[in-house]
Design a binder for these strands. Sequence first.
DNA 1: AATCTTGTTCAGTCGTGACTGAACAATCTA
DNA 2: TAGATTGTTCAGTCACGACTGAACAAGATT
Lengths: 168, 168
Amino acid sequence: MDYSTQAEHMSVHDDRECGSAPLDGIGRFIEQMGLSAQKDGVARISGRIFGYFIVHGGPVSFAQLAEELQVSRASVSTNARSLAALGIIERVTLPGDRQDYYQLAASPFLRMIESYLIRMRQMQEILQQADDSIPADMHATHARLAQMRRFYTAAVQANQTLIEDLGQ
Amino acid sequence: MDYSTQAEHMSVHDDRECGSAPLDGIGRFIEQMGLSAQKDGVARISGRIFGYFIVHGGPVSFAQLAEELQVSRASVSTNARSLAALGIIERVTLPGDRQDYYQLAASPFLRMIESYLIRMRQMQEILQQADDSIPADMHATHARLAQMRRFYTAAVQANQTLIEDLGQ
DNA sequence: AATCTTGTTCAGTCGTGACTGAACAATCTA
DNA sequence: TAGATTGTTCAGTCACGACTGAACAAGATT
């Protein structure tokens, strides 16, 4: 695995057995991004791609992504497109090149917060449904649901101001 | 599945085939809490237990939890203890009763935020390591890492003030 | 002592979903 | 036309981890 883009490093130790390559700082960071994504219920490869773009922001070709991260083109296709759908990376085209390129979006973290906000609003929807369909005489239950609702309202508010605080 | 605690409902339709029972509002809410937890990378049963306690806050015995949620005692043991470790529910003992009881913690949502904060701080740690171990001449990379770090700093800050805003 | 009751642990199963390879579609080049 | 090149899709595999049942430990009861 070679995460630099400099040609002279490309295949120094390339034909080794496919296990435990000692990772440098960059490689370790990318793997940790993968593990961290996995903990959040996101595909590990998505996290690794995100990490890769933190390191190399610039346009990177589809094929290069597959090769450097050592994953199939199919996985790159699926995961890069889902990251693009979230607005974390974006597709770009280079004139005179038929390949797809991706690059880090302008404000990837704002987009992350926005996807959190979507999740929270879904939760608010669930709470609304529960409040409507649970018998009105279960007062303690409704009180706890109201508390939960206050929490999500405040959390949504906090994240919206966070978006503003982070500028543009 | 009978989520009420009233005895007269206990076994009205009990001996049906073990599939798709039509869920009432309470049951639907509990299942949605389970699915929502799963999306967050948490065990579905943990989410259902949490939902159960939103509905029935009061002390509920270990055995009752297992029976009403239709899961093994082993699962209840594992998941209830992990929720208790997060401070979302807590163990209580009733005098003269050898069973374990659980109840909803005082401010379960504050504890949820605190566990998010832990995750964010781990992320900050990863960023610190990356910053230290990645060659200093990769200026663009360090700039992106710095941007990411600013994001997490702001997010941690926002969640801390959220905790304060939610009182006690 | 033997026998319940109650919670934990552990080996094993089973489902889910991430990931792959291969077939495919679309577009370019010769 | 045939043959590259490139991305997507889809069926299939495989790993991971949630969940279970059974064995176990620790008390209580007789």
